[in-house]
Design a protein around this nucleic acid. Structure first.
Lengths: 335, 335
DNA sequence: CTGAAAGCGCTTACAG
DNA sequence: CTGAAAGCGCTTACAG
């Protein structure tokens, strides 16, 4: 093993006494090579310490074996679970994952999209930033590679999509609160411009309509889909002259901030005020107190996204797919 | 914009009426190209919709612009925070991150290491699997690329390292419990073979020694560094004929499982039994009840790791570095 | 079942 | 300040 020089196919071929084509075929397990030759080549590979150069292979074969996955925030458990599902599935198919995190910034997202294309990714799974604009959609539609959107749908984007039914999720959560007798329910956190926020809002309204109630706009406070966002939103809504008796949170992460804020005001969730989250992240179970929430299925979304992408990358004319998973209500101690 | 064909440097050169070398230099912002030529070339790039092909560039220039980051578990908040730090820093330096998750499996780690090298990553940040063996170390030492280890040190590995002082962290946690009058303290979770477990054990022992106490091996139960691991360990230790009055947990994640297990036995943390975690992940603050824990600094570790790796990738003969961050005790309600 | 030759799309000296 | 030519390390038809 030399220090700087990388062993090439040529050298392996020379050492084994065959042609480079043969070595290439052996490496890729092509069955039309005889067992004897195969063994000879593998011996040479081992003694020379040859390392396959995918960069060269990719240039020649015009595919990279790399899939880009762009998400908004890996420290959000929902997203990290989603990522695990996508990554595991992709790796099983033999792909490697190039990860990008946008922190919900559209400009960062644009940059990542460009970088990934320059790296010739074979496909892309995108969990779009909340404020993705028409410009983003245009860019995505111009991309010449398979792409699937996850968790958040983009209007007019010509892509496959995997997500959950946020309308229904919000509907069951709010209906649960209404059935408990609440008439003033707040909706806290999440970016108003995003499809995920809008769809929850639709479910929220639907539940109100069916109950024959009118909603109070002053109880709807949007903000970043983070713990801080939840903390700020609850602080604001508690200053309302007629404060809510229950809160529907955009996500469990937002709910965690809401719980923090309530503790500060010495309000006990489930007693003084009812709270419902969204996502059912594992930690919601050990929040203080354990959080009632809507269960979505991030890992399944990741797996499904990867499967669809794989089909798009390998089949010639796959059908466009749109998969919507059904949510469930998990009742714990905050309601 | 044609549908299948990718525009090449050649075509841009022809369109702009210059040579490919010139286009190449323009793209890479080489200052020795005149402003006029530069503009002409950029115009052609835009009208043709040219996309830079890094795969080709990388093959020729023998560097990929990609850094591999291999971690044990992105759904662990400590790790995801670490990743954010590393990734942000690396991206600022212009690198793209190829992510690998081992789920603490050594064989998966081996495979990922190979894949990354085949993709010609320029450098590697490795958060080693708990049971990484001598074989792993040998493999790492043979790698011809810069590599920095994070969070867990590997004996005899010839690498830079960034982590925190686990001995001291465990020492301050256990001393805190001893000062509260506890004499039977359990140590739950974590893999016995890993440096992170061993170092905490050393701190644990040191605290006991200074207090003039002898430790009881039956209160030391190792296991996977996960919530499930914590749950299982606490279930076991509670069956001890002389159960502990306090528990030092390998990590906050383990502590979350311990809290779950205690709830099942109707023991109230901070009242019936004291608990201390390790990591100070954001959620520990809203655990039920809020967890006393040792604060480590995952994001800083990520940032430091990336900085050191960058130096190694760019400087010719950097000094070997070993950075150990100091932990702090955060007292909340479980003790 | 195996080999000789061309080429993927860039960058790199080198020449002018 | 710019161009012609070689080459990075593979894979891909094609021929035998």
């Amino acid at each position: 093993m030399s220090k700087k020089h990388r062993v090439t196919l040529h050298e392996v071929a020379a050492h084994a006494g065959v042609s480079t084509s043969t070595v290439s075929l052996v490496i890729r397990n092509n069955p039309r090579i005889s067992e004897a030759t195969r063994k000879k080549v593998f011996d040479s590979i081992n003694t020379l310490g040859y390392v396959y150069d995918r960069v060269a292979a990719n240039l020649r074969s015009q595919s990279s074996g790399i899939v880009g996955v762009i998400v908004t925030d890996i420290s959000n458990k929902f997203i990290s679970e989603f990522l695990i599902g996508a990554q595991n599935t992709l790796e099983q198919f033999g792909y490697t994952v190039l990860l990008g995190t946008t922190f919900d910034s559209v400009s960062k997202q644009d940059k990542l999209l460009s970088t990934m294309v320059e790296h010739r990714v074979d496909g892309l799974i995108l969990n779009p930033a909340s404020k993705s604009s028409e410009k983003t959609v245009k860019k995505i539609n111009e991309l010449q590679i398979p792409i699937v959107l996850a968790n958040r749908e983009l209007e007019d984007a010509n892509c496959d999509y995997v997500g959950i039914d946020y309308v229904k999720g919000a509907y069951i959560a709010v209906t649960h609160l209404l059935e408990k007798g609440h008439k003033r329910i707040a909706y806290l956190g999440g970016i108003k411009a995003s499809s995920t926020w809008i769809e929850r809002m639709q479910g929220f309204q639907l539940a109100y309509e069916r109950a024959g109630l009118k909603l109070d706009e002053s109880l709807i406070i949007d903000g970043p889909p983070t713990r801080e966002g939840g903390f700020d939103a609850v602080s604001k809504v508690l200053q309302n002259e007629n404060p809510p008796t229950a809160i529907f949170c955009f996500s469990d992460l937002v709910a965690s901030g809401v719980l923090q804020g309530l503790a500060l005001h010495e309000l006990t969730p489930g007693v003084d005020i009812d709270i419902v989250g969204f996502d059912n992240i594992p930690d919601s179970e050990i929040y203080h107190p354990p959080l009632t929430t809507v269960s979505s299925f991030p890992r399944s979304i990741g797996i499904k996204s990867a499967n669809i992408l794989y089909e798009k990358m390998t089949k010639s004319s796959p059908e466009k797919q749109r998969i919507i998973l059904k949510p469930e209500l998990i009742i714990r101690e905050t309601s």
